[in-house]
């Protein structure tokens, strides 16, 4: 039903391609009076909720905007510190919009190389001989499918846990990669893929896969 995103990781663990197909919105806006009934903290240059879940605002959500103006990391658009601004009772009441923080491109690079090593450890800790790395990783909100080619490139697809037909989608992406990225004379190996045809065909393949629908809880 839903494919969330696609990652292509080269054999050194570098992210060479990433595409977000669908990301559900998770925003909550609320008007607050002083003092705030949430505990906020700065984490990774973002102001996030540390404690106090209410009205759709959850722990881990970041401050996206205050009174309708977007927040830039931990600073307001006029360069004032967000936490200082919120600690000042003269600024109240104010409307704050919270949401799940989006992954930055640096974080995506980091997560891709993190998976690269998790994949290797998964195979090293195997109780059975001849095991591959992690092929399917299941959580309550998504399922990660990974296909490693013989040359060591990993295609990773994040999808809804009930989404079927991911195996054929992964092979299809491999085919598209071989046809449109590798045969592109301007593409140098192991480097990020910037190729329009690759992207177009990938999107088409994702649409086909999503139409395949969800068949029960199997993979």
């Amino acid at each position: 039903m839903v494919v969330f995103s696609v990652y292509v990781v080269n054999k050194a663990g570098g992210l060479v391609y990433q595409y977000d197909n669908y990301s559900p919105r998770s925003d909550a806006e609320k008007t607050f009076s002083f003092p705030l009934d949430l505990v906020l903290k700065v984490h990774d240059e973002r102001v996030v909720v540390a404690f106090g879940q209410r009205d759709g605002i959850r722990v881990g959500y970041a401050v996206l905007s205050i009174n309708g103006t977007d927040v830039n990391g931990r600073h307001m658009s006029d360069n004032r510190d967000v936490l200082e601004f919120l600690n000042n009772s003269f600024n109240y009441p104010l409307a704050i919009r919270f949401g799940r923080p989006r992954l930055t491109s640096n974080e995506k690079l980091m997560l891709a190389s993190m998976f690269h090593s998790l994949f290797a450890i998964g195979s090293q800790l195997s109780p059975e001989p001849g095991s591959s790395g992690i092929e399917v990783l299941e959580t309550d909100t998504f399922k990660l499918h990974c296909f490693q080619t013989l040359t060591g490139i990993k295609f990773i697809v994040l999808a809804d846990p009930r989404q079927a037909g991911i195996d054929s989608l992964l092979r299809k992406i491999y085919e598209i990669y071989s046809d449109f990225a590798l045969k592109n004379p301007f593409y140098s190996l192991e480097m990020p893929i910037r190729c329009e045809l690759f992207e177009q065909n990938l999107k088409a393949a994702l649409e086909v896969a999503e139409k395949a629908g969800t068949f029960g809880t199997g993979s």
Binding site: P127, E128, E138
Partner: peptide, 10 residues
């Protein structure tokens, strides 16, 4: 959060 993972053998 995390529930399980599969490799080719376990």
């Amino acid at each position: 959060g995390f529930l399980s993972f599969n490799t080719s053998r376990y």
